[in-house]
């Protein structure tokens, strides 16, 4: 799956961007399939906005976002849903779990959204063990700590097929050890799918062997 950006400019940041340069905004950018991409973005530069444009939950921009050569706007609702079920996965900065469901149910929701689930329940429990959240799986979303919820959100993103994984500050509430474990898990899952990811964060880091590094 090919992602291309043509002179993408977020309308709220239009004036600010006239005063500084960016690797992404207002440029022709291509993300080759299967690459590990790191985008470093200090606060206020629009990294969450970029992720939202790439996932097509916000549309207040000038320029084009092309997925496999087609504008997001040209995908109808059913096609868009299909992309999100099988081609693009996401870890939101604000996690966006359902509080009415338990941790396990939140993960199951994504896992069984497809008639033929991509991974088994056992695999989910395996991943939970790796991230040390097995003990919270049956708890309601409301009662978990932010760090626990973040790890659940990570697992949720990894139970579906994808060609691209979008991550917006995915380790913000994890200690170093858990962050390393999570990164290892993510890298493993991406390689297994021959998929790439785009990760945005405030600072540089060495958690992944990045193929591309950019500044927003």
């Amino acid at each position: 799956m090919l992602i291309q950006l043509h002179h993408l400019i977020p309308l709220p940041l239009r004036e600010k961007l006239e005063q500084r340069d960016s690797d992404i905004w207002n440029k022709d950018v291509q993300f080759p399939p299967g690459q590990f991409v790191k985008i470093k973005a200090p606060s206020g530069t629009g990294k969450t906005t970029l992720i939202h444009y790439l996932y097509h939950v916000r549309y207040d921009y000038a320029g084009k976002v092309l997925i496999n050569g087609k504008l997001w706007q040209e995908y109808d609702k059913e096609a868009l849903a299909a992309m999100r079920q099988q081609q693009v996965s996401i870890i939101f900065q604000d996690l966006r779990l359902f509080e009415q469901l338990t941790a396990m149910e939140n993960i199951e929701l994504k896992r069984i959204m497809l008639p033929q689930p991509y991974c088994t329940r056992e695999k989910v429990e395996e991943m939970a063990a790796k991230l040390q959240v097995s003990h919270v799986l049956q708890q309601s979303g409301r009662t978990l700590s932010y760090g626990e919820r973040q790890r659940i959100a990570i697992i949720r993103a990894l139970v579906q097929p994808f060609k691209w994984l979008l991550m917006d500050e995915p380790f913000s509430h994890l200690d170093e050890e858990n962050a390393q474990r999570a990164a290892a898990l993510i890298a493993e899952e991406c390689r297994a799918r021959q998929a790439g990811f785009i990760l945005t964060d405030l600072d540089s880091d060495a958690r992944f062997p990045y193929d591309v590094k950019m500044n927003l």
Partner: peptide, 15 residues
């Protein structure tokens, strides 16, 4: 809100 989040997560309107 729930419906919007479901759609964002990829639930098809048909579902």
């Amino acid at each position: 809100k729930e419906i919007q989040l479901l759609v964002i997560l990829g639930t098809a309107p048909g579902q």
